[in-house]
């Protein structure tokens, strides 16, 4: 199961609660944080690492961009939730997509489902959690304490590919930390305790 964090920034209490309620109905979303103003939210973005931000304002992207530049923060999918009926070309510069709260219920659900799909990459291949051979090799090396660079050298692949494998492993197993992956590897006899201690 995917494990997304969403942030809703909306001044109107009623509308904010409405968005939260809808987001909550998606299994893919684990955490939802609510804010009335973007100023309260920006400092916390690097901490929350959201995948999805619902924001409603006509304010320009530079403000957000200049604040976040250089901060350690992954790719965020920005959704403009201004109530105007946007045409496709009217999506503001800072947003990836516009989603008006005035749209009918089915349309809103479909759009959000599409977003979950895009965010999750392969997640809609459902419960497929078998690790591939390559992923198992990477997992073994992670549990022996090797860095991404060392794993890349050993397997003759790029560090970027190692990171992709790691992301897929974490997504499939639902385990994020090295210590957790190590426990998994031992429980499944992929590595022995001696190998880890050495």
């Amino acid at each position: 199961m995917a494990d997304f964090t969403a942030v809703v920034i909306e001044r109107s209490y009623v509308i904010r609660k409405g968005w939260t309620q809808i987001l909550r109905s998606f299994d893919e979303i684990r955490n939802i944080y609510e804010f009335a103003e973007i100023e309260e939210c920006l400092p916390l973005l690097p901490k929350y690492h959201p995948d999805l931000v619902l924001y409603h304002s006509t304010r320009i992207h530079q403000e957000i961009g200049s604040y976040l530049s250089g901060k350690e923060i992954g790719k965020i999918f920005w959704v403009d939730i201004s109530p105007e009926e946007h045409k496709k070309e009217d999506v503001p510069e800072w947003a990836d997509l516009s989603l008006s709260p005035l749209l009918p219920r089915e349309k809103i659900r479909q759009t959000l489902e599409q977003i979950m799909h895009d965010l999750g990459g392969e997640t809609d291949q459902g419960t497929h959690t078998e690790l591939s051979h390559r992923e198992i090799t990477v997992l073994k090396l992670i549990s022996r304490g090797l860095t991404n660079k060392e794993i890349a050298d050993k397997m003759f692949i790029s560090p970027h590919t190692v990171i992709t494998h790691r992301k897929n492993i974490t997504r499939k197993l639902g385990i994020k930390t090295v210590a957790g992956l190590t426990v998994y590897a031992i429980l499944n006899k992929l590595v022995s305790l001696e190998e880890i201690d050495s």
Partner: peptide, 21 residues
């Protein structure tokens, strides 16, 4: 505030290990 740490993630992993594996 911005200093991120992975203690939350460890707890999450531990739950999943017990639940799933």
């Amino acid at each position: 505030q911005e200093e991120h740490n992975d203690i939350e993630e460890k707890l999450y992993d531990l739950k999943n290990i017990i639940i799933k594996y």
